[in-house]
Design a protein around this nucleic acid. Structure first.
Lengths: 137, 137
DNA sequence: CCGAATCCGCAGCGATACTG
DNA sequence: CAGTATCGCTGCGGATTCGG
């Protein structure tokens, strides 16, 4: 082991500066909403019009009441969804997209289109990878 | 409690059918990638060109070595990123976007634009909500 | 320099039961 | 019908250590 190699590199000079682009680029704010399991699904469903709590629950199969309440509440908090409560005797609650919510929904729809167009390519890549590198990931 | 109200509703007739739209709509596949904390950031950084492991780590401030390895590996698995290893003596690894990865990065960039344009509106809505409904969420 | 392996806290989410 | 409260599990992700 007389070979001294101090782990020095020829220096690629690739010394970038900041976080991701120029500034703080608040992608995270949006992605934290889109990141959870349900927000997007609810958003998409509301694209089709006003929905009541139960209708949403029915339209988003896997979701639990709890997660639906939590999700809608977060969306309302961010000003993406508006909630209207009718104090009838079985209570009724309507959810609708705000203008902001609609514009986000459109942006998301574009991403959905992308995923539909590429889902097979991705599935194929995954299959390849899992075949060539079994046991990883 | 003689008042019998079986919790029946006037029937809104809002009986949607399937999961989210028409079919399975594989938004989830993509969102599961975008959902985690780092994939998008790495993707965006790679938009600027080929990057080595260390350069990525430097460009994505908060990330740990572990999460960078995990993230890149997942991206490679999905065929969004290509990995080139040079068996030099300190090893060198380059990451670059595949064509698929580039197209996804563009779609994501649109979403980033949206978030930048609306971040203040959202922040405002949140502040309002937290002020009017303290203790929730 | 690049990465694998281990340990561990904590948030997300589901299941269930209860209220108005 | 719409929503709250509590519990328990699971997996992401951070810190750290070891290896080629």
């Amino acid at each position: 082991m007389t070979d001294v190699r101090t782990w020095a590199l020829p220096a690629t000079g690739a010394d970038e500066h900041g976080p991701c682009g120029d500034e703080d680029c608040g992608i995270r704010d949006v992605l934290d909403r889109l990141g959870d399991r349900w927000s997007v699904l609810v958003l998409v469903e509301l694209t089709k019009g006003v929905r009541r709590f139960g209708a949403l629950k029915a339209a988003v199969p896997g979701i639990s009441q709890r997660m639906l309440t939590v999700t809608t509440k977060r969306l309302v908090r961010d000003g993406l969804v508006e909630r209207t409560v009718y104090p009838t005797i079985p209570p009724q609650t309507d959810y609708r997209l705000t203008p902001t919510g609609e514009s986000l929904a459109r942006a998301v729809a574009d991403l959905a289109d992308w995923s539909r167009r590429h889902k097979e390519v991705i599935a194929l890549a995954r299959a390849r990878f899992d075949r060539d590198h079994p046991g990883e990931l």
